[in-house]
Simulated scan of single mutants.
Amino acid sequence: MAGKDDLDYEDMLEVTYEALEESGFRDIRVTDAEDLPEPEAVEGHIPDMQATNQKGITYLFEVCPPEVFAEMELVERLQAFTRRAKELGGQVVLIVPEGEEGLAAAFVEEHELPEDRLTIWEA
């Protein structure tokens, strides 16, 4: 695995999966993982991960290396995911590299994404 300062998409996905397992999340679904089920599609978009915490709350995870914040498709994905999270009483989590929380927060604010259903975690 890469060092903490140079985590790429795959590394961030792996770190997130391990953290979810250790935290007691269940029904963890991962996009393109050989041994795990796929997350459910949401309005044609598939989240990077989906899991349920110990209280039964569904979380949709989107792994976001800094370069994805330049892609307008990310806005559409996150809008769809936050709508689904609201329906489920769940949460959307953006996974960003350590030190990039400010970039993600500015992106969320700029595109007026619903912050009540969206959280940012650093990998």
Rank of each mutant, 00 (worst) to 15 (best):
T52H: 08
P66W: 05
A51G: 04
P39K: 06
P65G: 15
I120C: 01
L36R: 14
Q50A: 11
D5R: 06
G3D: 15
E38P: 12
G99W: 04
S23K: 14
P47N: 14
V75G: 03
L94T: 03
M1K: 15
E14G: 00
A2F: 13
V42P: 00
I46V: 07
F69D: 13
A33T: 01
V68C: 01
P65K: 06
E67G: 09
Q50W: 02
E101N: 04
T119L: 09
G90D: 07
A105G: 08
Q50L: 04
G3T: 15
E34Y: 03
N53V: 06
D11S: 08
A70V: 05
V30C: 00
V42E: 01
D35N: 04
M1I: 12
E40I: 04
E112Q: 07
D11G: 12
L78T: 15
F81Q: 01
E73V: 00
E73S: 13
E109H: 14
M1C: 14
I120H: 03
K55H: 11
T16C: 06
V108H: 03
T82S: 07
A51H: 01
D35T: 02
P114K: 13
F107C: 00
E62P: 14
E21L: 11
A19Y: 07
E87G: 05
V75Y: 15
E38W: 09
V42A: 00
D32I: 02
P114E: 14
G56R: 01
V96C: 12
P114H: 08
Q79P: 07
G24Y: 04
K86I: 06
E115H: 10
F25N: 12
I28V: 08
P39F: 00
L113T: 04
R29D: 07
M1Q: 08
Q54S: 09
D116Q: 12
A105R: 15
Q91V: 08
Q54D: 05
V15E: 02
G102Y: 14
F61D: 00
A2W: 05
P37R: 12
E10Q: 01
E14R: 10
T82E: 06
P114D: 09
L60A: 10
E40Y: 00
V30A: 00
L20Q: 13
V68S: 02
D8M: 05
K4N: 15
E62N: 12
W121R: 08
A41D: 12
V75Q: 02
V96P: 01
P37V: 09
P114N: 14
L60E: 11
K55A: 03
I57L: 06
A2M: 13
L13C: 10
K4S: 02
K55V: 02
F81L: 12
P65T: 12
A33C: 02
A106Y: 06
D116T: 11
R117G: 08
L13P: 06
L113H: 15
V15S: 08
F107M: 02
E40Q: 02
R26G: 08
L78K: 13
C64I: 10
T58M: 09
Y59S: 05
L103Q: 11
T119Y: 03
L103S: 03
L7W: 07
I120A: 12
L60C: 09
D6T: 09
T31V: 02
L7Q: 05
D48V: 06
I57F: 01
E76R: 01
M72I: 02
E115D: 04
K55Q: 07
V108P: 15
Y9F: 05
K86E: 13
I28T: 13
L118M: 11
